[in-house]
């Protein structure tokens, strides 16, 4: 689904001493099928932004479009239910929201609320747990008997069982060990491709933004500070440092090689192995003539 923000502002507690403008005339477009990373510090407006995507918040001014659904200030959207059926949000620490007696019931809760027939729910549940790699033997267990990592997968399965077209991920790997992080990120990437989803990833990890996203939006103090393809964004190291953001480690290293060794080297998306070959060629170059 195409998504667009057109001069969207959002103010918390307007006309009170606590008034706070969290989004300030934010405009950008996300094309259907793209994978967008939203980056910014705590308080930059990321959470406020994603809550507009499924209508949990309504803009104070401006307009949000998600496919055919429009969210405008002071205008009730009667289609909110439909919108929420199609935009799945995986909130931070989603396992804190588990509540049912069994894993299967927890996964079924969302689709049941939206009146999905029982047989279809079964089918979706099986598909969801397959994607998240939860063993079917666990379906009748209490979600609270599972490990933290498994609980997170159950919570994610519940979102997938809604069959969303847009997937919003708010720091989905926080607190997981490195292996668990990679598994979850690879899984979302697979789903994104297989189901042609539009994916929006909120993250602090420049490494993940570089590895998975095809577009990056950087928020700073409620405004869009930069947006572009990852390699373009990360060329602007100084602009990022100005708002205390880093470039991915591989790019930091390539820059240091160039500056300290005085050689030509550019990061264009090489794998670590490719980079190693290039570096070897560069530093051994002279010896060819020995």
């Amino acid at each position: 689904m195409d998504i667009s923000f057109d001069k969207v502002s959002y103010t918390y507690q307007p006309n009170t001493p606590f008034e706070h403008r969290a989004l300030d005339e934010v405009s950008f477009r996300i094309n259907s099928g793209s994978y967008v990373a939203v980056i910014g510090h705590t308080g930059s407006g990321k959470s406020t932004l994603i809550q507009h995507l499924n209508g949990l918040l309504q803009p104070t001014s401006g307009e949000v479009k998600v496919g055919e659904y429009h969210l405008k200030a002071n205008e009730k959207n009667k289609q909110l239910r439909k919108l929420r059926e199609q935009v799945g949000v995986v909130f931070q620490y989603p396992e804190h929201q588990l509540f049912e007696e069994t894993v299967a019931k927890d996964i079924a809760f969302g689709p049941q609320n939206f009146g999905v027939p029982q047989e279809e729910i079964h089918r979706r549940t099986r598909e969801a747990v397959k994607a998240t790699q939860i063993h079917e033997d666990l379906l009748e267990r209490s979600p609270f008997d599972l490990s933290g990592g498994q609980m997170r997968r159950v919570a994610i399965s519940g979102v997938l069982a809604m069959n969303p077209q847009v997937l919003v991920l708010d720091e989905p790997t926080a607190g997981l060990d490195p292996n668990g992080q990679k598994e979850i990120m690879d899984m979302f990437h697979r789903l994104h491709k297989d189901k042609q989803l539009t994916t929006i990833l909120v993250t602090h990890s420049m490494e993940d933004a570089l590895a998975y996203a095809d577009h990056i939006v950087i928020l700073n103090q409620g405004k869009v500070y930069m947006e572009s393809a990852p390699l373009e964004i990360f060329k602007q190291q100084q602009a990022l440092e100005d708002v205390q953001l880093d470039v991915p480690e591989v790019i930091q290293f390539v820059t240091k090689v160039r500056d300290q060794l005085g050689v030509e080297l550019e990061y264009t998306g090489q794998s670590i192995a490719e980079l190693a070959k290039e570096l070897t060629r560069i530093v051994k170059g002279d010896r060819v003539y020995e």
């Binding site: 490195p178 668990g180 990679k182 670590i272 190693a276 070959k277 570096l279 070897t280 051994k284």
Partner: peptide
């Protein structure tokens, strides 16, 4: 380390690849 669900930092990975590449 990878077998037990952990990882190595970027510098270690690149160092390994450099060794493989003949450095």
């Amino acid at each position: 380390l990878i077998e037990i669900g952990l990882d190595t930092p970027f510098v270690s990975k690149l160092a390994d690849e450099l060794k493989d590449a003949g450095l």
